[in-house]
């Protein structure tokens, strides 16, 4: 087997206030090109795990390797450079609401351009062309100069995907990308992520609420419960008993088509 792309070793995160343990000794490996889905109840540590991987949150203990680089030991400056290769999309899209879609997409190139130019809002022609290409890819070319808050939820998430595409990432972190969307829109957004995974070979780590979505898109599933890794395997391996273990005895599976 090839060298794994992402290695998480004994990752632990303790929040200072209230001494809440968000992650307890989590370890797993991800191969290049995998579509890894993280499932678990709200508060089980999914978001914390994703944010530890690009160090938006500093892990308390443990090591993370991406492509052989131990990112938990990088300096803030090195980490900033490294983040360019890690795209991220969010549950609430986190777009600049007052700015145009184009500006939002271009922010994906901030790490590649000199600071003074970006402060004045100047991006090279090649970046602008790339932005339009990526917008076309997510089917929003005609919305390029519309204000972001005028778009629907699904469209806003697609802008988020285009922003991540601008980074030309090797790894995509998706923090509950479809939780704020309706079922039909969810599938369209998930398909764009799947497309990134298949066509561009981007390794994807996505946290999802619905098991049906996880089964449909994931090549592998890990499950967190109260910050601990309780399952790691293929989607088919999650049967009724496993499901109850992850979500608790009273849980009932909800289908989303």
């Amino acid at each position: 087997m090839a060298e794994p792309y992402l290695v998480v070793e004994h990752l632990t995160k303790v929040y200072e206030r209230g001494h809440v343990v968000a992650l307890k000794d989590v370890s797993f490996e991800v191969q290049k090109g995998e579509f890894l889905v993280i499932i678990g109840l709200s508060g089980s540590g999914k978001s914390t795990l994703l944010r530890c991987i690009n160090r938006l949150i500093e892990p308390t203990k443990g090591r993370i390797f991406i492509d052989g680089v131990e990112i938990t030991r990088l300096s803030p400056r090195q980490m900033r450079r490294f983040r360019r290769k890690i795209g991220m999309i969010f549950q609430h899209f986190n777009l600049i609401k007052r700015a145009t879609v184009m500006t939002n997409v271009l922010t994906g190139r901030l790490g590649y351009n000199p600071t003074w130019k970006t402060l004045l809002g100047l991006f090279p022609r090649s970046d602008r062309e790339l932005a339009l290409r990526n917008l076309e890819r997510v089917g929003l070319l005609e919305k390029a100069y519309v204000r972001a808050d005028e778009l629907s939820g699904g469209q806003q998430q697609r802008v988020g995907i285009a922003r991540a595409l601008m980074q030309q990432p090797e790894l995509l972190l998706a923090d509950e990308p479809v939780s704020a969307l309706d079922p039909a829109t969810s599938h369209s957004v998930m398909q764009y992520i799947e497309q990134m995974n298949r066509e561009d070979g981007v390794t994807v780590l996505a946290s999802l609420h619905f098991l049906s979505l996880a089964r449909r898109y994931g090549t592998r599933i890990i499950a967190l419960k109260d910050g601990e890794l309780v399952f790691d395997g293929a989607p088919e391996e999650i049967d009724d008993r496993k499901f109850k273990e992850i979500y608790g005895e009273e849980a009932e599976e909800v289908e989303i088509r």
């Binding site: 900033r80 983040r83 986190n94 922010t107 901030l110 790490g111 970006t118 402060l119 922003r163």
Partner: peptide
């Protein structure tokens, strides 16, 4: 909204860029 700061930081932007765009 701290979410936008997170999003811009995640693209690899530095402090000044986060200030300008988030």
């Amino acid at each position: 909204d701290p979410g936008l700061i997170e999003a811009i930081t995640a693209t690899g932007a530095n402090r000044l860029q986060v200030l300008r765009y988030a």
